[in-house]
């Protein structure tokens, strides 16, 4: 009897919590724009005051990838020429996700040894929030690109490059706030994280080649056995 009562109550609580969570998700998504315009304050509050959510970060990542794919088709051919025969949509998506994963893991693994305050989740969130200028600037640019001539296209090029630079600055600055690093220390660890990415790629390559050789070894043993029998 008591159990049933509990269940009923938890259902209501659940619904309420869900509504709360959703409200928080929306607020955190909106907070991304605050981060864009107030990078130092914003990224500090992002993790230290728990203003950000992983859900919102993933949404930003999703829109980044979406805009990048949409750009292929809907940017004017004057600014982006696509050799469609060479496009593999999965590789194209992976070309963002794979470096991102390496970066997040590499940065976390290094900073956690040197007093970095951010957890893996925080690094992921900070990086994704830093990407926000990309969809926000590139999407309108993509539409506008169809209504300009090549001479007016200089604006397109400048804004396009600016969006990337802004992303880069936001990510680097964001991680400094999240880890509570001084600018110098942060720069050092940014470079170190890039090296960590290289090391991970190297290890992955060794790993895969070892596995394939190991498999080949057992296959050849099997073949040898078949010949003998």
């Amino acid at each position: 009897m008591a159990r049933a009562y509990q269940k009923e109550e938890s259902k209501e609580v659940k619904r309420e919590r869900r509504a709360q969570n959703f409200a928080k998700y929306l607020a955190s998504l909106k907070f991304g724009f605050y981060c864009m315009t107030h990078p130092i304050d914003g990224f500090w509050k992002l993790t230290h005051e728990k203003k950000g959510t992983v859900g919102a970060a993933t949404t930003i990542l999703f829109f980044t990838i979406l805009v990048r794919i949409l750009k292929l088709r809907y940017t004017s051919f004057m600014f982006l020429q696509v050799y469609w025969e060479d496009i593999n949509i999965f590789l194209y998506i992976a070309s963002i996700l794979f470096p991102l994963a390496l970066w997040v893991v590499g940065n976390w693994a290094l900073t956690t040894l040197f007093d970095g305050k951010g957890r893996l989740k925080d690094v992921y969130m900070g990086t994704c929030y830093g990407m926000l200028p990309y969809p926000v600037i590139q999407f309108p640019l993509m539409i506008v690109s169809n209504f300009v001539t090549i001479e007016e296209g200089q604006f397109y090029q400048v804004l396009s490059v600016l969006s990337l630079i802004l992303c880069l600055l936001l990510i680097v600055n964001g991680l400094a706030q999240i880890h509570a690093f001084s600018p110098g220390k942060n720069l050092l660890f940014t470079v170190a994280s890039l090296f960590a990415m290289l090391v991970m790629v190297f290890i992955l390559m060794i790993f895969f080649s070892m596995i394939s050789q190991g498999v080949a070894y057992f296959i050849s043993i099997g073949r040898e056995m078949m010949f003998r029998i």
Partner: peptide, 11 residues
Amino acid sequence: YDDENYSRAFQ
């Protein structure tokens, strides 16, 4: 992909 002529026509 003739961007110059395209621009001319588009303008």
